[in-house]
């Protein structure tokens, strides 16, 4: 591990100033991803600014929303009674991720800023444009089972690993960020970005910007939502694909409004707005959901190794809707 300086400020503005002033500085949260990357040499920061001493670790409920401090641990958030009742997809997404120990350590902001588990990104002996800009992409034409099928570029086919981020993208969450110039609010769907020519940037955050909170708006959709994840083993594995779905039905059972976001398919949580548009005003039958999913998947790009993801997205989304219609969340 390369040497680094360590700071643990008590004030958010001081933490932001420390990182903003130093291009080689990184924020440290629970450490469950970053400490591993320090060992692997995936990242080599000169300074770590530990943000876990900043407070920002409470969940506050108002009539209109839930405000989650960035340092709320994944396990505490998943178990929060207000979240379980009002935003079950978020609780389900957290519980579908990592292990009991890691959920006790990982923070809300840190979960969103975890890096891809693309095998080449984590293997410093191989070229990877995300790890080392301009070095090439080993996943294109390499081991491709985990590759993106939507929105990839010639530079990068990595997928974003967070389950939480998928549920947040579906339920219109807002990410609150503190930077050197003050606070700004980013829709969760715009926090992560597609790789295009710069896969080294996972998010739209500027260097030194710190996630301080996540806000979840209350809605009938959010209260009737769930998260469905497909993976290689029953527990403690990243998503092959996943779907967060929120559903609001009219009295006659037609879809008044719907939210769909997918994980495991792209460099960012993929909000399936074209599928949502196709379902509004329709009865949410299995055929209708499949047809809506297929509209969204029109632009998908697959190869022999990743083609399985398309039927899996169809099945996962359909099953999530089925569970919501059954009354489970």
């Amino acid at each position: 591990m390369r040497p680094f300086a360590y700071h643990r400020p008590a004030d958010p503005a001081e933490a932001v100033a420390l990182v903003a002033a130093d291009p080689a500085a990184s924020f440290l949260g629970g450490g469950t991803n970053l400490v591993d990357h320090l060992k692997l040499g995936v990242t080599r920061p000169g300074t770590l600014v530990d943000v876990t001493g900043l407070g920002l670790d409470t969940v506050e409920q108002t009539d209109a929303s839930l405000r989650i401090g960035t340092n709320v641990r994944n396990s505490d958030l998943a178990a929060h009674p207000a979240l379980r009742a009002g935003w079950p997809a978020v609780s389900r997404a957290l519980l579908a991720g990592a292990s009991g120990q890691i959920r006790n350590q990982a923070t809300t902001g840190g979960n969103l800023l975890q890096r891809t588990r693309c095998v080449y990104f984590q293997d410093v002996t191989t070229p990877c444009n995300k790890r080392e800009s301009g070095s090439g992409c080993s996943a294109i034409g390499g081991y491709g089972r985990y590759n993106a099928v939507l929105g990839a570029s010639g530079q990068c086919v990595a997928t974003h690993p967070s389950d939480l981020a998928v549920a947040l993208a579906a339920l219109d969450a807002v990410v609150v960020v503190l930077g050197p110039d003050g606070e700004r609010r980013i829709p969760a769907t715009e926090l992560h970005r597609l790789p295009e020519e710069h896969p080294e940037h996972d998010t739209t955050l500027r260097h030194g910007e710190l996630i301080t909170a996540v806000e979840l708006p209350s809605s009938p959709l959010a209260a009737r939502s769930t998260y469905q994840k497909a993976r290689d083993r029953a527990s403690y594995a990243f998503a092959l694909v996943s779907a967060a779905v929120g559903l609001d039905l009219d009295e006659d059972g037609t879809v008044r409004d719907v939210r769909i976001a997918w994980g495991g398919v792209a460099h960012k949580p993929w909000r399936a707005t074209r599928a949502e548009d196709a379902l509004r005003g329709e009865q949410p039958t299995e055929d209708a959901v499949r047809a809506a999913v297929d509209i969204e998947l029109t632009g998908a790009n697959t190869d022999d190794q990743s083609a399985y993801k398309l039927p899996m997205v169809r099945a996962t989304t359909t099953y999530a809707v089925h569970r919501l219609l059954e009354g489970s969340r």
Binding site: Y6, V35, D36, K39, N104
Partner: peptide
């Protein structure tokens, strides 16, 4: 690397991996 759990302890009463935790933190 946080994958096996054999380094688990109770930290402030909660189960915690010690391999993915910096001592200074």
């Amino acid at each position: 690397h946080g994958q096996c759990g054999s380094c688990t302890v109770l930290l402030d009463g909660r189960r915690h991996l010690t391999c993915l935790a910096l001592a200074v933190a």
